[in-house]
Each structure stands twice: as C-alpha cells, then as structure tokens.
Computed example of a mutant assay.
Amino acid sequence: MRLHDDHHAHDGGLATDLPLLIRQAADRRRALRWLAGGGAAAGLLLAGCGGGGDDSTATTTTGTGTGTGTSIGTGTSTGTGTTSCSVIPEETAGPYPGDGSNSSNGGVANALMLSGIVRSDIRSSIAGATGTAAGIPLTMRIQVVNTGASCASLAGHAIYLWHCDRDGNYSMYSASVANQNYLRGVQATGSDGVAVFQTIFPGCYDGRMPHMHFEIYRSTNTATSFSNKLKTSQIAFPTDVCTTVYNTSAYATSLRNLGRISFTSDNVFSDGYSTQLATLTGNTSDGYVGTLQVGISA
C-alpha cells in the first residue's frame, strides 16, 4: 500500500519522522486485525457499494467459465460467460404473412401448410410452384434465447421467416408473384438456439424501411398456423449496407424508395429498433451474412 503525504513534512529530521512512522505502522496493524476478524462484514460492505438497476426486458448474468463465445446481434457473450439479452418487441405481421391469418386470391393464404416449408434455403418456390427469387445472397442466422432464464439458448423452437423480393413484392400476394411462395420458410433452432436461412437481400418498397418478418413457434409441429405463435416481430437492416446493396443495378427501384424513408419516419421502427437491427458482414459480390439475437420470455 502506497502512503501519500500531501504536505511533504519531512524537514524535521528523525525526531519528527519517527513518531509519524510509529503511528502509521499502528494504523496498518489495526486495519489488518479488522479485516482478519470481520472479513464477512467487509465483503458485505464492499458488495453494497456496487451499482445496479432493474430492467424487466433485459437480463445480465456473469459466470467464471473460461470457454469462448460469440456475439450475435444485440446480445453479447464473452470468454468469462457474461451474456445479456433483451425481449424483442412485438410487431405487426403486416398484410402478407401467409400464416393462415388472412386470405389471398380467394382463399386462405397459409404457407405453413405447404409440403417442404421446413427448409433452410427459401429462395425457390415449393409444393409444385416453380420460380426462384433473384438477388444478392444473404445468409440469416437468428438465435432465440430465453430472457427469463439468463439468456439460455432455446433449442427446438421454430422460426417462420418471410420477406419481399428485390422488387418489393411478396409471394402469394403481389399480383406479379401471386403464384409463387418463395422467400418463406420454417427452420428449427439447434442446440445453440440458432436457425439459419439462405435467402436474398430484401428490397425496399415505398413507405417502409428494408425489413424481414418472422414468427416464433414452440416447435416445427406447432408452426402450422398463426394461432400457435409465441412472438411476431421484424428485422431491420443497417442503412449504409442497404445503400451499398441498392446501388447495384438490380436494386435500382429499392434505392429510390430508400431515399424517401428513414427509421424516424418508418411506422414500425420509429419507436426504436436497437434489438431488431441485424449485424451484417460481407459484400455485394460474395453476398452477406446477417446475425440477430432474438430474446423472448419463455
């Protein structure tokens, strides 16, 4: 322990310094005896000095493990076992969910009942429909965690993901692609809570920021109708990456639409989107990888 003497009173020689040194040694002995005899109380005192907060939508846990971890979306994980997660907000499924909640072309639109809907690559149509959505490749890695259990990974849950094509059209609904069902699919989460989808970078249609829709179900067996869903939300994308993608010739319409909208004016993300913003890596030549951690209270 370094002793500080702000007054620098050392000019009196040994006669002055000796009493000071004796008092300091005695003080140190008293401090050591207090710590030895009252360690538990001292520990409680020190613990009481720490700050804390209460956020019903966030969970933070700290362990002492030495394993390594990864960071997915807004959640964090470190080599010491520290993790944090937040409940993702509930959002509208929009007018084109294809989950049995509305109709299209005179019948109930339910892609969840299509043969082959449980799949990783959602770029092509299935169940007798032919067609493949063109666009810059995007791999979406979505991790589902339980905010009510220290951000534990939720294995075996199902994610239904759907989004528009590069021209802003939704399969099963938009007139030009009403006979298609691409860019829709269901995947089960693995032991790490992650479901992976192979798709394309979504376009930007007029009036909305670029986004994807998803619903979470307890399992693939229950992912057959909107009435079984646990959560509905949307994924946002960084504006700078969207601008880069939309500057390619195939996304020219999306670039114009993006210039007329912002997160501030978007009718879904204007109240906040920090827990919905995907992390993206990659480029327009090789494609992109997007990651997002989705917290639900399960």
Rank of each mutant, 00 (worst) to 15 (best):
residue 82 T to P: 00
residue 7 H to E: 13
residue 186 V to P: 05
residue 80 T to A: 14
residue 257 N to W: 06
residue 193 G to W: 00
residue 28 R to W: 14
residue 242 C to E: 09
residue 130 T to S: 14
residue 54 D to V: 10
residue 49 C to D: 07
residue 243 T to Q: 15
residue 160 Y to W: 01
residue 9 A to Y: 11
residue 130 T to I: 10
residue 93 A to N: 07
residue 40 A to N: 13
residue 173 Y to W: 12
residue 95 P to E: 15
residue 251 Y to S: 11
residue 39 G to Y: 11
residue 54 D to C: 04
residue 115 S to P: 01
residue 271 D to S: 15
residue 292 L to R: 06
residue 25 A to E: 07
residue 123 R to W: 01
residue 185 G to I: 04
residue 126 I to M: 01
residue 294 V to R: 00
residue 166 R to I: 12
residue 255 L to W: 04
residue 143 Q to F: 07
residue 189 T to H: 04
residue 216 I to P: 02
residue 1 M to Q: 11
residue 151 C to P: 07
residue 208 R to C: 09
residue 18 L to G: 02
residue 109 A to M: 06
residue 31 A to N: 09
residue 93 A to H: 05
residue 103 S to E: 12
residue 288 Y to C: 03
residue 245 V to P: 06
residue 227 S to M: 12
residue 190 G to H: 08
residue 104 S to K: 04
residue 160 Y to L: 01
residue 34 W to R: 15
residue 1 M to H: 13
residue 179 N to P: 05
residue 6 D to I: 12
residue 270 S to Q: 09
residue 238 P to Q: 10
residue 20 L to F: 11
residue 71 S to T: 15
residue 5 D to V: 09
residue 76 T to A: 08
residue 148 G to P: 05
residue 124 S to L: 02
residue 48 G to Y: 06
residue 297 S to R: 11
residue 119 R to W: 02
residue 246 Y to Q: 08
residue 58 A to N: 10
residue 45 L to A: 12
residue 150 S to P: 04
residue 180 Q to V: 00
residue 232 T to C: 08
residue 13 G to N: 03
residue 153 S to I: 00
residue 32 L to F: 13
residue 129 A to M: 08
residue 233 S to E: 02
residue 90 E to K: 05
residue 263 F to C: 08
residue 126 I to P: 04
residue 45 L to W: 08
residue 213 H to A: 05
residue 13 G to Q: 05
residue 50 G to F: 12
residue 137 P to C: 06
residue 213 H to W: 05
residue 86 S to Y: 08
residue 287 G to W: 01
residue 101 S to T: 11
residue 175 A to T: 15
residue 201 F to V: 13
residue 20 L to H: 13
residue 151 C to E: 08
residue 221 N to V: 05
residue 69 G to M: 11
residue 141 R to A: 07
residue 151 C to D: 07
residue 46 L to G: 09
residue 10 H to R: 10
residue 8 H to F: 13
residue 273 Y to L: 04
residue 207 G to E: 06
residue 276 Q to T: 11
residue 123 R to V: 04
residue 267 N to M: 04
residue 128 G to W: 03
residue 24 Q to I: 13
residue 68 T to H: 11
residue 206 D to H: 12
residue 175 A to C: 09
residue 283 N to R: 00
residue 69 G to T: 14
residue 210 P to Q: 10
residue 34 W to K: 14
residue 119 R to N: 07
residue 220 T to H: 01
residue 171 S to F: 02
residue 127 A to R: 05
residue 84 S to Y: 09
residue 131 G to K: 00
residue 130 T to P: 01
residue 17 D to R: 15
residue 216 I to A: 04
residue 200 I to H: 04
